[in-house]
Design a protein around this nucleic acid. Structure first.
Lengths: 230, 230
DNA sequence: TCAAAAGTGTTTCTCCTACACCCATGT
DNA sequence: ACATGGGTGTAGGAGAAACACTTTTGA
């Protein structure tokens, strides 16, 4: 059933940059291998066309679920890319999102070899289809910037985590080492972590206390003008 | 000449939130009165359809120029709004931009009564067409946040300005008073202002020195890791 | 002479930084 | 025993905040 309009319209898609942190503390991105031309065989960001009955965010969530099985995650709009020739076939405007998930609690389809999806360390990326290199770079810049002044890093960790895991997360994302004592002081002084009555298990060294991000307290503090900052 | 596609496509528009600062130090937004249904007679953000041969930013610049005569300004993508029913006629996705101009050096069409455009103080806005209230609120939030950590405030001032004008700009945008001595110390210590051999003219009090934002120095400092912050 | 803004320093306090050692646990 | 991370305090310095008066100019 064809659809006719008085003026030509660009196609509209969503693309997602999904970041995850693995146990070796490397930051990874999920990519999908293209089965069709153009860029057949190349790796690309997961994404697809926006349907008429779904919002942009709903489209992004749907695509992620279809292609990777991921259901609940942090998702935020990144930027909209609309260069005239970014797709060689026709004019396609894409609304890019970025997502954060923790790989330990949500092993995704990408892990199974039945899938055409895979995780790549951000410092060992293949070259990507379309302008997806550019989108990925902007997503990474945004992540690095935002992780400093909003508590989104927790989305990359399991719900219960140790202070050292958190520190390594920041070291990984920001690309710089942090002082252990200063980091612990700073993060604990914010009062955003609830200390649990639990410890790590099965680690080959002294087991660390587990903490949990206290979302409710964070919202309260925000209203009083508090600003998260690492 | 009709255009036919296999699947339906949303219409794609750009909308612009144009901020300006007037001599009375109030922050204003430029709005356009709609001549056509829906929301006939209501005020709305300037904007229009994206053409097939222009990028999103080019579309925003073109619309601004057509509707307001503004040519050179600071323009940055804000967010893309894609709720299914944001336009009562059909599905329309809009890429919103926000712009900063200084009203003194660029009197715009809106000032002439031949135009359907007008400036409104941001604390005395009419209700707007479509979801433009929401877009405007998000633009204002972004401006308030961004003005603190990027030197975009200068875009709202004449090229040559006094320290007090700059201070009032921040007080206006941030909605809080600042200490004069501390403000001057901080801003001058950054080394981003070039002091000119000129002073204000025709003011009913002692004439202040004029300064100018030093873009080149700012770029150099940025590369060395400097971060602007008020 | 009055009104309006220009211009200027010091003290206090808070927060960031740098820095090193012992402890607990599993192999 | 050893390797690995867990866990802790203090001193010094930089920068933020608080704060008031004199000067210049035009009306």
């Amino acid at each position: 059933m064809p659809h006719t309009y008085k003026y030509p319209r660009p196609a509209l898609t969503v693309d997602c940059v999904v970041f995850g942190l693995d146990r070796q503390h490397t930051l990874k991105v999920m990519l999908i291998q293209r089965k069709l031309s153009p860029f057949q065989g190349d790796w690309a960001l997961p994404g697809g066309f926006v349907r008429m009955d779904e919002s942009l965010e709903a489209a992004a969530l749907r695509e992620l679920c279809e292609e990777t099985g991921i259901e609940r995650l942090f998702l935020e709009q990144l930027y909209t890319f609309g260069a005239v020739n970014r797709d060689p076939r026709e004019r396609v405007v894409t609304v890019a999102y970025y997502a954060l998930i923790n790989l330990e609690e949500h092993p995704v389809k990408a892990a199974s070899d039945a899938s055409d999806a895979a995780w790549f360390a951000i410092d060992a990326l293949p070259s990507l289809a379309f302008d997806h290199d550019q989108i990925l770079k902007i997503a990474l810049d945004r992540l690095k910037a935002k992780v400093r002044y909003e508590p989104i890093g927790f989305e990359l960790l399991p719900r219960k985590f140790t202070l050292f895991q958190l520190q390594r997360l920041y070291e990984t994302v920001l690309g710089q080492e942090l002082d252990k004592r200063n980091f612990r002081k700073k993060i604990l002084n914010m009062g955003l972590l609830r200390e649990l009555d639990e410890r790590q298990q099965d680690v080959p060294h002294r087991a660390a206390k587990l903490y949990q991000f206290d979302e409710a307290t964070y919202r309260q503090l925000r209203e009083k003008g508090f600003n998260f900052e690492i």
